[in-house]
Design a protein around this nucleic acid. Structure first.
Lengths: 123, 123
DNA sequence: TCATTATATAAGCAAATGCTTAAATAAATT
DNA sequence: AATTTATTTAAGCATTTGCTTATATAATGA
């Protein structure tokens, strides 16, 4: 891909194109960070896990396996991704690992949860 | 996968498991809808497109191709997914198609944009 | 009408994703 | 120490995703 500005439309607003590039450059860190959170939450299984953790406080992989009717390894692999991203954390009690949300880690997620809980139109 | 409750932990809270299932059942439509939006916005290219549309009002595929340094077909395919999902719409002016956000269609997205614009910690 | 421009669509392919099953860890119980 | 339980990790595989290139459609202008 060429790097120079190349949109050939007669109406193309070169200043707008430059401004857009600058906007993205300025926000690139935020976009990258938020994009990762959205990609994680964009999987239905993970969204359910996050939503339930928000509502119940903490749950273990075995619980999720029951609730979501999925194998424990499948759950465990989803959990790992979210833990790696710093969205959730764990506490051990005997053999059981209780997972919970890392609070204040994602205001975007918290906004989503509030919408889901209110059971409003959420699109 | 078995359908009955099967978590065998001594501490397993059967009422909690039932409550979680009921919660998911109640919110399943919302979860499904929001999950699709998050999956779309969870791609960095699409997130940038949505972000720029929010900021600039409307832009055409050619603009995005320039700004994001990607081929027009690549852009066009991302746009299609978001249009199919009802997140964006288009207006024709001669040969050019101007795309814009469908307002009020996703409050979740709007929340994300406001965070990005403020350039705050967004995780 | 023919060429040009803007966009979309389709086919092909490499990479990423999300499951499965089997094996490894770790803690509790016997 | 050996067994059971909870969880993780790893390997394998089918599906999905997101690009590429080539082709189709649609509008403009010579």
């Amino acid at each position: 891909m060429a790097l120079e500005i190349s949109c050939t439309r007669a109406e193309a607003d070169q200043k707008q194109l430059m401004r857009c590039r600058e906007t993205l450059r300025m926000s690139s860190n935020s976009i990258n960070t938020i994009g990762k959170v959205l990609a994680l939450a964009g999987n239905e299984t993970r969204l359910k896990i996050l939503f339930l953790l928000n509502k119940e406080g903490e749950l273990c992989p075995c619980d999720f396996s029951d609730i979501l009717e999925m194998t424990v390894p499948a759950i465990s692999q989803h959990i790992r991704k979210m833990k790696d991203a710093g969205l959730i954390t764990s506490r051990r009690e005997g053999q059981t690992l209780y997972y919970s949300l890392v609070k204040g880690q994602s205001e975007v997620l918290e906004g989503i949860f509030s919408r889901l809980q209110e059971n409003k139109k959420v699109a």
